[in-house]
Design a binder for these strands. Structure first.
Ligand SMILES: NC(=O)c1ccc[n+]([C@@H]2O[C@H](COP(=O)([O-])OP(=O)(O)OC[C@H]3O[C@@H](n4cnc5c(N)ncnc54)[C@H](O)[C@@H]3O)[C@@H](O)[C@H]2O)c1
Ligand SMILES: NC(=O)c1ccc[n+]([C@@H]2O[C@H](COP(=O)([O-])OP(=O)(O)OC[C@H]3O[C@@H](n4cnc5c(N)ncnc54)[C@H](O)[C@@H]3O)[C@@H](O)[C@H]2O)c1
Lengths: 241, 241
DNA sequence: GCAACTTTGTTCCTGCGTTCACAAGCGGCT
DNA sequence: AGCCGCTTGTGAACGCAGGAACAAAGTTGC
């Protein structure tokens, strides 16, 4: 019944394996992982903290601290072995197991996610699609047939779904969330603009595009106090015509 | 040339109107705004900090501090007038003006965004769509015809686009970003999994779904140390079969 | 084999953001 | 009209994350 959408700084009673890893660090580790795999494809076998930090857009000290959560797998005077580092980060992030994903609400956004190839490639196979619309049930989207929302609990348990993605209208999000939880899903990615009520052992992450746009709007408003848009300071490349 | 994707704590030299507002607070204000408009629709005219904080899922002290950035518009002993509060938050976030949005890359995700009605409703009309695919150019999506990427600078300037949304493959994101900047766009929402290089007066926000999934994966891995998934502590509602 | 250089891992410190706690202020009730 | 209770707004403390700086460690060159 606890409400704790974001703002989780690892549980107060911290007796879990290895040091507590700050959430911000976890997010960055995921980025390092992407940079590293990209570099490995280009044949790079070793990177210094400075190089990797530059590519990821963070401070090199921050990067080294983040990597220290993973363990000491660098070589002083040389840098990090890219392949080894990828291996250890994947282990910390739990990416050695595949995480089966269910998408609920196959509308505009649900279609996009179901058709997206980037998730299976990264170890997140989409194994279930759900919608309440009878016309959609049975139709394959991205090669996978849509099931009815009523079957969420059974199907999720059966296919061992670990991550549920909610793409329904806001009004249906809580009901769908409850069904996912009933199906044993304890990780939820929520695109609907509502705060979900979940048991304390369920982790919810919210992606709120409207909020992102409004934050951008705020900075835009801060920059140009006058009502007209043209009052830019100086931007050599933005000179039009 | 500065790399500062997130991690902006308001400019060091702070001589702008009113106090510096922490980025985290701006994001929460956007959420309060949504809760408030929803409550107003239900006929609620007054809310206490405790009520509003509960609905938004934050601490009431945090909420009051956030609202203090907006100004002192509450009434002690009573609470906040919902309508007045909405008005002032909208002003702070710069939502009194409409912000014209351009979407670049009309694939899976671009289609979803172009068809989404929630943005226009919130003061973010989509006024331009771009793609490099000649087959898409000219075709209307969500009632708006797709233009060719080459025309980004002119069209964005012409239609006074303030926010650019990048939904292209990662490989094209930087080029597209440069074109948007050339068109005078200084706020960018980036869905491609790359760090964009932009001039220091351009604000970039990145939405990285793969990272979100990996963070969920991390928490999942933390919870169940054993390889099998069934080792849940106790969850009354999740008992299957 | 030794010395000099490079780079990691960590410690310390600074600063921000969140939370607690309380005084000030306002409305309602008698 | 005055008192009482409730809620705001903010000053102060706390905790965490990020950045700088340094010592340990390993490698390369001589
Ligand atoms: N499309 C976007 O670009 C976008 C952007 C930001 C936020 N969102 C949010 O994402 C969510 C989905 O957006 P969309 O544009 O895909 O909407 P949509 O209307 O296109 O799709 C919603 C889908 O959910 C299904 N649905 C409705 N009730 C359901 C229920 N009880 N159980 C299961 N499925 C149900 C509908 O049948 C429909 O297929 C919304 O909450 C929206 O606010 C979407
Ligand atoms: N679809 C998703 O659910 C999803 C999820 C997470 C991340 N993403 C990211 O979002 C981006 C888009 O994903 P998608 O699934 O829509 O891809 P997509 O392949 O369906 O669409 C990409 C579109 O971009 C266009 N394009 C290519 N090069 C271009 C250029 N130089 N200028 C303009 N347009 C160009 C293509 O013609 C195509 O229409 C990708 O970077 C992807 O990694 C998508």
């Amino acid at each position: 019944m606890t409400v704790h959408q974001h703002g989780r700084y690892s549980t107060p009673v911290e007796d879990l394996p290895s040091r507590a890893v700050p959430e911000a660090a976890v997010g960055r580790l995921a980025i390092y992982l992407r940079v590293l795999t990209s570099m490995i494809e280009q044949g790079v076998t070793t990177m210094s903290s400075e190089e990797l930090a530059g590519a990821a857009g963070v401070n090199s000290a921050t990067l080294r601290k983040d990597l220290s959560y993973v363990g000491s797998y660098g070589t002083r005077g040389v840098g990090y072995d890219t392949a080894k580092l990828v291996e250890h980060i994947e282990q910390l992030l739990g990416l050695t197991r595949h995480h089966s994903v269910a998408v609920v609400g196959i509308g505009n956004l649900g279609h996009a996610l179901a058709n997206y190839g980037g998730f299976p490639d990264r170890g997140f196979p989409v194994t279930a699609l759900f919608d309440v619309d009878e016309d959609l049930v049975g139709i394959p989207v991205g090669g996978l047939p849509v099931d009815h929302v009523n079957t969420i609990p059974e199907v999720c348990a059966e296919r061992e779904v670990t991550i549920g993605v909610i793409c329904t209208p806001a009004s249906a999000a809580q009901i769908v969330c409850d069904l996912l939880v009933a199906g044993g899903v304890r990780c939820i990615l929520n695109f609907a603009p509502v705060m979900l009520q979940v048991p304390s052992d369920v982790e919810v992450r919210r992606v709120d595009l409207a909020v992102e746009l409004q934050i951008l709007s705020f900075y835009q408003a801060r920059r140009s106090p006058g009502p007209r848009a043209g009052a830019a300071p100086v931007d050599p490349v933005a000179v039009i015509r």
